Simulated assay, not measured.
Amino acid sequence: MVDTAAFEALIRRVDTLEAEASIVKVLFRLGMTLDYGEHDAWLDCFVPDASFQMVEVSETDRVVRVQHTSRDALAAFIPGHSHAPEHFHKHLVGDPVVEVDGDTATSTSYLTRIDKGADGPFLWSFGRYLDTFQRCDDGRWRVRSRIIEVESRAAPVKASDIGSK
């Protein structure tokens, strides 16, 4: 005889693990598609009314450098971001902590950007990603909001570094 309550609890745990794994894949896909200029695949990681913000933070200040509030705005932004083969860099995601609550989720993860330099690779910046996700009608998880907190960078930001014209 099957314990129905235990079986249902097992299904919930497996569903949560599958959701967490799917969300982590989206986190990785965001970096890979950005680094290689796969704009359509990058945009597909976001819901249509997604919000996106890049903020430089310090001990005493928060300066918003980029802010967009729709996938259409992101579509206008992303072609200006550097990518291979013109500029090689890697957006690395580390230590994601994902919390799933039904069809929504949050994630906090570390970011590290490594760039190709004249003397070899170097650390360009680090910080963290603060993301919220939505499970969409097609079953895929997509970003509803992304806040990128840049805590340190190798050089002052230029418009071309962040996709601005």
Rank of each mutant, 00 (worst) to 15 (best):
M1R: 12
V2R: 09
A5K: 12
F7K: 10
F7M: 12
E8G: 06
L10N: 09
L10D: 11
R12I: 03
R12F: 02
R12Y: 03
R12P: 02
R13A: 15
R13C: 12
V14K: 03
D15Q: 15
S22R: 13
S22M: 10
S22P: 06
V24E: 15
V24H: 05
K25L: 10
V26M: 06
L27A: 14
L27D: 09
F28R: 06
T33D: 03
T33R: 01
D35M: 04
Y36L: 03
Y36D: 05
Y36E: 07
G37A: 05
E38I: 00
D40H: 09
A41D: 15
L43R: 07
D44N: 14
D44C: 06
F46S: 01
F46E: 01
F46W: 13
V47H: 07
V47Q: 09
A50V: 04
S51R: 09
S51L: 03
Q53K: 14
Q53S: 12
E56L: 11
E56V: 07
E56M: 13
V57L: 11
E59L: 14
T60I: 14
T60H: 14
D61C: 11
R62P: 02
R62Q: 15
V63P: 04
R65I: 05
H68W: 03
T69E: 15
T69G: 14
T69H: 15
T69P: 01
S70V: 05
S70W: 13
S70L: 13
R71A: 02
R71L: 02
D72L: 02
A75M: 04
A75I: 00
A75T: 00
I78H: 00
I78T: 02
P79E: 02
G80H: 02
H81P: 00
H81Y: 11
S82Q: 10
H83P: 00
A84E: 11
A84K: 02
P85D: 08
P85R: 05
F88G: 01
H89I: 00
K90F: 03
H91Y: 06
L92C: 06
V93D: 01
G94R: 07
V97F: 06
V97Q: 11
G102V: 05
D103K: 13
D103E: 12
A105S: 10
S107R: 04
S107T: 06
S109Q: 08
R113V: 05
I114P: 06
I114N: 06
D115I: 00
D115K: 02
K116G: 05
G117H: 12
A118T: 09
D119Y: 03
D119R: 10
G120I: 07
G120L: 09
P121D: 11
W124I: 00
W124M: 05
W124C: 00
S125I: 01
F126M: 12
R128V: 07
R128S: 12
R128K: 13
L130I: 07
D131A: 09
D131H: 12
D131T: 06
T132H: 12
T132G: 08
Q134S: 07
Q134H: 08
Q134F: 04
C136T: 15
D137H: 08
R140S: 14
W141P: 09
R142Q: 15
V143M: 11
R144D: 14
S145W: 02
E149M: 08
E149V: 04
E149P: 10
V150K: 10
V150I: 14
S152C: 13
S152P: 04
R153V: 01
A154H: 15
A154W: 08
A154D: 14
A155T: 13
V157W: 04
K158M: 04
I162R: 01
S164I: 02
S164Y: 05
K165M: 02
